[in-house]
Simulated scan of single mutants.
Amino acid sequence: MVLSLRDLTVEAAGRTLVGRLNIEVSAGSVVGVVGPNGSGKSTALRCVYRAMRPTSGAVLLDGTDLASLKLRDSARSIAALTQESHTELDFTVEEVVALGRTPHAHGNQPLTARERELCGQAMDRLDVTHLADRSVLTLSGGERQRVLVARALVQEPRLLVLDEPTNHLDVRHQVELLSFLRGSGLTVLTALHDLNLAAQVCDRIAVLDTGCLVASGAPAEVLTPELVRKVFGVDADVVPHPRTGIPQLLYDLAPIAPVPADTPTDALSEGPHA
Rank of each mutant, 00 (worst) to 15 (best):
residue 57 G to D: 05
residue 85 S to P: 02
residue 274 A to S: 13
residue 126 L to N: 01
residue 62 D to P: 03
residue 73 D to Y: 00
residue 227 L to K: 12
residue 93 V to D: 03
residue 7 D to C: 11
residue 236 A to D: 05
residue 52 M to Q: 14
residue 104 H to S: 08
residue 29 S to E: 14
residue 68 S to C: 03
residue 119 C to D: 10
residue 230 K to I: 00
residue 166 T to W: 05
residue 238 V to Q: 08
residue 107 G to D: 14
residue 136 V to Q: 01
residue 180 F to W: 15
residue 230 K to G: 01
residue 215 A to V: 08
residue 114 R to Y: 07
residue 238 V to C: 05
residue 267 A to V: 14
residue 256 I to W: 07
residue 129 T to Q: 14
residue 123 M to Q: 07
residue 238 V to T: 10
residue 138 T to Q: 02
residue 150 A to F: 08
residue 265 T to A: 15
residue 217 G to P: 02
residue 153 L to S: 10
residue 31 V to T: 13
residue 55 T to L: 07
residue 34 V to R: 13
residue 199 A to K: 10
residue 130 H to P: 03
residue 35 G to E: 07
residue 50 R to N: 05
residue 95 E to C: 05
residue 122 A to C: 12
residue 175 V to T: 04
residue 231 V to M: 13
residue 11 E to D: 13
residue 10 V to E: 06
residue 37 N to K: 11
residue 29 S to P: 02
residue 33 V to M: 06
residue 260 P to C: 07
residue 240 P to R: 11
residue 241 H to S: 11
residue 267 A to H: 12
residue 198 A to T: 00
residue 14 G to W: 13
residue 1 M to F: 01
residue 148 L to N: 01
residue 271 G to K: 12
residue 20 R to A: 12
residue 121 Q to I: 12
residue 140 S to N: 10
residue 118 L to N: 13
residue 132 A to D: 02
residue 209 D to F: 13
residue 175 V to L: 15
